[in-house]
């Protein structure tokens, strides 16, 4: 397949680097203000080297990628809320050209799922987005395999940054601010950690899960979301004295979406530590399935993107 990649951050760059190993060819890549296009196959290494040196991937405009030769548009621009732009327009543009879209960007399918699906129905192209929930963990693929009507509830730890902070706070008896600073030094938390620590990122993933399980109709505004900033180290110690700990848990149960800090058994399945993510699927007839792994990272997310692309073949 010929890939056009919108977004040259950690995920977009990794997809570009790994594409040939998966038997695909990159014909275009764009960052927020430039693009490199070659219908005969782009030298992705050169484009990424140019970006490292000059801050741009090439001399073309990002919009021109949408007009380029490609089979699959990889939407890896940063997640935005509300109108989910520019990711939403990129998705629509590809579908209107009867091209496939593989998203790593959560915005369009969390905030405008029904519209994206409506465009998909009028297109020869298909939309897939396994990378948006749980990074490298094949959550949506597994739901697809089980059959969405056989999944009765989903619970899990869906944000590695928040989980790192909570597990460090519990293990080292430290306060939130201290551990956040440490996480930022380690590159686990961003300079502005709002999306992660306020529960927004986990909530978007739950919204996507709800859209998949219930056939659409959900947006971020339908989720009840609480974050972890207000949790003092003392609260984690009180929990530990009782054999429990606190995790930021996302739930899709009874057609409702909740994200918030919850008490879970310290040695329980959901109490993963560090940046690990875990998703627990409750099924109609097959009990509970737990899948855990790395929920974020360039190569991890790119692996899920490339898996989606291979399934389009």
């Amino acid at each position: 397949m010929r890939l056009a990649i919108m977004g040259a951050g950690a995920v977009g760059a990794s997809v570009a680097e790994l594409a040939s190993a998966y038997g695909h060819e990159v014909t275009a890549i764009a960052d927020s203000n430039s693009a490199a296009i070659d219908p005969n196959g782009l030298d992705t290494e050169a484009a990424l080297a140019t970006k490292r040196a000059s801050g741009t991937v090439g001399d073309d405009s990002p919009e021109s990628v949408l007009e380029a030769e490609y089979d699959v548009l990889v939407e890896a621009t940063p997640t935005t809320l509300g109108d989910a732009e520019p990711g939403y327009s990129h998705t629509v543009s590809a579908l209107e050209r009867d091209r496939h879209v593989v998203l790593a960007n959560k915005g369009p399918i969390a905030e405008r799922y029904d519209e994206v699906r409506a465009h998909e129905r009028n297109s020869e192209g298909r939309v897939s987005f396994d990378a948006t929930v749980g990074g490298a963990i094949p959550v949506l693929t597994t739901i697809d395999d089980i059959g969405r009507s056989n999944v009765t509830a989903v619970r899990g730890v869906l944000n590695g940054t928040a989980n790192f902070i909570l597990s460090r706070m519990a293990a080292e008896s430290l306060d939130y601010e201290h551990v956040l600073a440490e996480a930022q030094d380690l590159g686990v938390a961003e300079a502005d950690p709002t999306f992660d620590v306020d529960g927004t990122d986990a909530a978007l993933k739950c919204v996507i899960l709800a859209n998949v399980l219930f056939g659409g109709g959900y947006a971020l505004s339908d989720a009840a979301v609480e974050g972890i900033r207000e949790i003092p180290g003392a609260a984690l110690q009180l929990a530990a004295e009782d054999g429990q700990t606190i995790r930021l848990i996302g739930e899709v149960v009874d057609e409702e979406i909740r994200v918030g800090p919850r008490l879970v058994p310290e040695t329980g399945t959901l109490a993963v530590s560090g940046t690990q993510n875990i998703v627990q699927l409750q099924t109609e007839r097959a009990g509970r399935l737990n899948i855990s792994g790395r929920g974020a990272g360039g190569d991890e997310t790119a692996t899920a993107v490339l898996g989606d692309i291979n399934r389009l073949l």
């Binding site: 619970r155 609480e226 949790i231 848990i249 739930e251 058994p265 329980g268 627990q280 737990n290």
Partner: peptide, 13 residues
């Protein structure tokens, strides 16, 4: 006051 309640319905162990 913030309430942190136990997760119910998930795997206890």
């Amino acid at each position: 006051i913030t309430v942190i309640s136990p997760l119910t319905g998930g795997d206890a162990v």
